[in-house]
Simulated assay, not measured.
Amino acid sequence: MEMSGQTALVTGATAGIGRAVAVQLAQEGAEVIVHGRDARRGAEVVAHIEAAGGRARFVPADLADSDDVLRLAAESGAVDILVNNAGVYKFLPTSEMTDELFDLHMDLNTKAPYLLVRSLAPGMVRRGHGSIVNVSTLAASEVTTGTGMYSASKAALEQLTEIWAAEYAAQGVRVNAVAPGPTRTPGTDDMDAATFKRIEATTAMGRVAEPEEVAEAVVFLASRRSSYITGVVLEVSGGRLALG
């Protein structure tokens, strides 16, 4: 129960990696604020955590709306651990990407984390401790077909991760990021077998990650076990294939 007495806000915590992170943080003793847009799924995650003896509450918010992001920060109160996991990804070539989709990627994947850090980091500074973990993607550093706007929004988040780490390090707040590779999520459930195998073949391990495997890395960076680590982007990608 290493995180007993701490409060963690996990955005996008009703499914996939975010859900796994919320569950693992609760297992470590943190009180978890489960963010999402679907009240039914949010209630299910809270019930799952509470059934295992943990503490959690659900706070809905639309992270594409700046005012709603600020409301989420205000309702969350004193947060010791912030996990910016929520995001959007729409894979299209640049010629088919609309202005609206561009704005949506930047608002959810970059601006919302910025607003949450701006709102919640000062409280961490006052208390003398805090940990922020941003969930990025391997596509931010590796050219991937059709991911232009998604990759750009996450690359910006990685740059902010390094800047925030430098800004807050001397004040007891650490900021890191995790960059997952292909991961099994609700979005992969409907994928045909041939496409799924092609994705698995892009990793050195020859398989996609389970959400819980990515969550382990997030929770490690959020915990005191990584007390001398800040400003890193940790790949959780199953390894890259050798050239040649």
Rank of each mutant, 00 (worst) to 15 (best):
T94V: 08
S95I: 01
E96F: 05
T98C: 07
E100T: 06
E100Q: 03
F102H: 03
D103R: 05
L104Y: 05
H105K: 02
L108H: 01
N109E: 03
T110W: 01
T110N: 04
P113Y: 00
Y114K: 08
L116Q: 00
L116W: 02
V117D: 00
V117N: 08
R118T: 15
S119P: 00
S119L: 07
G123S: 11
G128Y: 07
G128V: 08
G130H: 12
G130M: 08
S131K: 10
I132N: 01
N134C: 14
S136D: 09
T137S: 15
T137H: 13
L138E: 14
L138H: 15
A139W: 11
A140I: 04
S141W: 06
E142Y: 13
E142W: 09
E142D: 13
V143Q: 13
T144Y: 02
T144G: 03
T144A: 13
T145S: 12
T147G: 06
T147M: 14
S151W: 01
A155E: 06
A156L: 11
E158G: 10
E158A: 13
T161C: 12
T161Q: 10
E162V: 12
E162F: 06
W164C: 06
A165H: 09
A166D: 12
E167Q: 09
A170W: 02
G172K: 06
G172E: 01
